[in-house]
């Protein structure tokens, strides 16, 4: 963790803010002491064939926090997120080096079972992607594939998950209807509920509101605030206001590298790197 915060001081180039930043870093480090790390990424590199998509990523993700990943499109945000549950391996040309530990287990080892990982780490995608099944079957899908057959238990999981995603009241009378009949915002909350049904520890979200209207976006953001109490959340967003509103910690990615990673307040009010400042003030991306 110490190695995590140090380079930030080194790369900073705002002489006038240096003093302040160092003290802040010290404060941050102290605060982090009593936060548990769920994911620890060390020197992660990833290639799609010849494309070097992630370069020397070092990042720690903390328990029961919302960690936002921001950066211009094509900078590797989705790739990093998909590495955390190894979905990135669905692309055959992918090669990685480095280590990611999830609760002290090294997940990039070929011997580590991805199915196991993905039961503890749920994912919500950019475009709402419910299955062409009933609302009930969408939510029950995860528990079923993990062997739960008991109808009563499934009923309970479905209700609990839908409540957890604060969509129970809207759909409780139409559980047997196809999920495609719902609005985009509702579909996305169904997808979040579906993800809660496997009772994960971590939820990865890849621009979960980019296909939604402002009102649905707000509901999902409120939901994320709720979920934070029980889950660790990593969210990719291209919406900086969103990152500022909902996240505790923000990582700024650029061209496959982590330029800066710090508490969200610091990133948005007092970034250490001029590129971060340029980005959040809308000068590029």
């Amino acid at each position: 963790m110490a190695t995590l915060t140090k380079p930030k001081v080194n790369i900073k180039n705002h002489a006038n803010t240096e003093q302040k930043s160092i003290t802040e870093t010290a404060a941050t480090t102290k605060q982090n002491m009593n936060k548990k790390i769920v994911y620890d990424t060390k020197d992660l590199n990833l290639w799609y064939g010849e494309t070097h998509a992630l370069k020397d990523i070092n990042l720690s993700i903390y328990e029961k926090e919302v960690t936002a990943i921001i950066g211009p499109s094509g900078c590797g945000k989705s790739t990093y997120l998909k590495t955390l549950n190894r979905m990135v391996e669905l692309v055959p040309s992918v090669k990685t080096s480095g280590v990611i530990t999830y609760k002290d287990k090294s997940i990039l080892d070929k011997s580590f079972k991805v199915e196991d990982l993905r039961t503890r780490v749920g994912m919500v995608f950019q475009k709402p992607n419910p299955f062409p099944k009933s609302i009930y079957d969408n939510i029950a899908y995860g528990p079923k594939i993990h062997g739960i057959r008991n109808k009563k238990i499934l009923d309970e999981i479905v209700e609990k998950s839908l409540r957890g995603a604060s969509i129970w009241d809207e759909v409780k009378d139409r559980l047997k209807e196809n999920a495609y009949g719902l609005s985009g915002g509702q579909q996305q909350r169904i997808c979040i509920a579906r993800c809660l049904a496997i009772e994960p520890d971590v939820i990865l979200m890849d621009e979960p509101t980019s296909a939604l209207d402002p009102k649905s976006t707000l509901r999902v953001e409120e939901l994320i605030q709720e979920l934070k109490k029980d889950y660790s959340i990593v969210i990719v967003t291209h919406n900086m206001q969103q990152a500022a509103r909902i996240s505790d910690r923000t990582a700024f990615f650029l061209n496959g590298e982590v330029v800066e990673y710090d508490e969200t307040d610091t990133i948005f009010t007092n970034p250490a790197d001029s590129r971060t400042e340029d980005y959040i003030s809308g000068r590029f991306g």
Partner: peptide
Amino acid sequence: VPQHLSEASYGMGAT
């Protein structure tokens, strides 16, 4: 069959 459907399934730990 859209890829996002199978991704959703894999994402939940399905084989």
